[in-house]
């Protein structure tokens, strides 16, 4: 039995998505870099990061896109289709940080639900997104 998918009728404007938290360890950064064929040193080479005047190795900003999409798919269900995802970087995040993702439905247009998402580390805003997901009626 698959998890049920939300229909548009089940969604309310202003509804919050479940919070998703993820800590990115250096192992996670290595695994993500390898899985995406991105071998840039800034994600695993601490001497390189220090030479770039950074405090630690950097979480790849593209991984935030995967997290934003995951939070929406986890909430909406397996028949939801993410049609658009726009995200902006607000600050860099580094190995060891625990990122917390929150989301809220802002608009419902026909079969498309628009979700505003925020990714924070403590009180610091790391990234924010607007995601459009198509749901069954």
């Amino acid at each position: 039995m698959i998890k049920p998918t939300k229909s548009v009728a089940m969604v309310l404007a202003g509804e919050s998505l479940p919070v998703l938290e993820r800590t990115f360890t250096t192992v996670d950064l290595m695994a993500y870099g390898a899985a995406t064929w991105d071998w840039h040193r800034v994600h695993y080479d601490i001497d390189f990061a220090w030479a770039m005047k950074l405090p630690n190795v950097v979480i790849d900003g593209q991984a935030f896109g995967a997290l934003f999409a995951r939070a929406v798919v986890d909430w909406a269900g397996p028949q939801a289709f993410v049609a658009r995802l726009s995200f902006k970087m607000k600050s860099m995040a580094f190995a060891g940080e625990t990122l917390r993702m929150q989301g809220e439905v802002t608009q419902i247009r026909s079969s498309t639900v628009i979700v505003a998402q925020r990714l924070t580390s403590g009180r610091r805003l790391v990234s924010e997104a607007e995601t459009e997901v198509r749901l069954p009626f």
Binding site: G65, V82, F87
Partner: peptide, 9 residues
């Protein structure tokens, strides 16, 4: 530094 991405699927 990455500023942002907009994906369409």
């Amino acid at each position: 530094i990455r500023a942002g991405n907009e994906y369409q699927f």
